[in-house]
């Protein structure tokens, strides 16, 4: 029973990782940029979600509005931070991205204060007994939302014109452009979707801890990087599997080896172990 409960907790945590890491791997697949500022957008999503929920009392409205605004924010980061330096070596946009991330953390602190914000009336806190487990509404909500959104994304990629255009651009940008695909449009869409997903993840996390703080992007900032490496850089399916796998490994690891390794160390030990066996990641790139 405990094993099952830990496994489920791992999947719940993993679905949160998935919502963050997919956006990151999408950006890597398309532009070969390690988009650290993504974690800043995740925190922005948490802030907007909380502020809108507290102002209107509607969590659904907060999710949609926050995902849209953060999606646009992601496009803005691309336009202002990455597009002007795309022809530089990869570490240049990486450094720019880290800079944007740190700046965002400090702006959150200056604008919203260092203490963190809490929900006036946290939603989805009711208890649900499912398969003999006590789960909170927010935990179930996060898993279902992740499944729906990521499923929708995969449908979009497989069955729509823009999805096909997007996959073609990831495969070979030059040939795709010669077929009349607007690569810039694809990039904007990419940032919009990835950032919107991260925003939703940020809101669910803030519901689970009832806390939105300036540094809430700190852990996802580097852990999502580990996940996308694990999943095979740029590989969306691999990223999903890696997210869930890492969630489960951490759930067991924090209990059984937590006194020797903390959660982050477990994540990176897992990463190293996998890379020793499969240097290309769990799944090969793209």
């Amino acid at each position: 029973m405990l094993f099952f409960e830990l496994f489920v907790q791992g999947l719940i945590h993993g679905s949160m990782y998935a919502m963050i890491a997919v956006g990151l791997t999408l950006v890597y697949g398309l532009l070969r940029i390690l988009h650290v500022a993504h974690a800043g957008l995740f925190a922005l999503g948490g802030y907007l979600g909380l502020l809108i929920t507290n102002a209107t009392g509607s969590l659904a409205l907060a999710m949609i509005t926050s995902a849209l605004i953060v999606g646009l924010g992601g496009m803005l980061v691309y336009r202002l931070c990455y597009q002007p330096i795309l022809d530089r070596p990869p570490y240049v946009p990486l450094i720019a991205s880290i800079g944007v991330f740190i700046a965002m953390e400090e702006v959150f602190r200056l604008v919203f204060g260092p203490y963190g914000l809490t929900y006036n009336h946290p939603h989805l806190q009711s208890q649900v007994t499912l398969l003999g487990l006590n789960l909170r509404g927010a935990e179930i909500g996060m898993v279902i939302t992740a499944m729906v959104l990521l499923g929708g994304l995969s449908y979009l990629a497989q069955n729509t014109r823009i999805g096909i255009a997007w996959r073609a651009t990831v495969d070979d940008p030059e040939i795709a452009e010669s077929f009349g695909i607007d690569a810039v449009k694809v990039r904007y869409l990419n940032f919009f979707i990835g950032s919107g997903l991260a925003a939703v993840g940020g809101i669910f996390i803030s519901l689970l801890s009832n806390l939105v703080e300036p540094t809430m992007g700190g852990v996802p900032a580097y852990k999502a990087l580990a996940i996308i490496v694990l999943g095979g850089l740029g590989n969306v399916k691999g990223t999903l599997v890696a997210s869930l796998a890492l969630g489960v490994v951490e759930a067991f690891g924090t209990i059984y080896i937590g006194s020797y390794l903390d959660r982050d160390a477990i994540a990176f030990a897992f990463l190293i172990a996998v890379l020793m066996i499969r240097p290309q990641g769990l799944f090969t790139g793209r």
């Binding site: 029973m1 405990l2 409960e5 830990l6 907790q9 791992g10 719940i12 945590h13 949160m16 935990e139 996390i205 689970l208 801890s209 806390l211 809430m216 700190g218 852990v219 951490e250 759930a251 067991f252 924090t254 209990i255 937590g258 006194s259 903390d262 959660r263 982050d264």
Partner: peptide
Amino acid sequence: NEYEYSIKDRQFGSLVAKVKA
């Protein structure tokens, strides 16, 4: 039992499950 967690942790799902047990 004694469990340890990192200052960055905000999600304690697995720890809570074990403490309950």
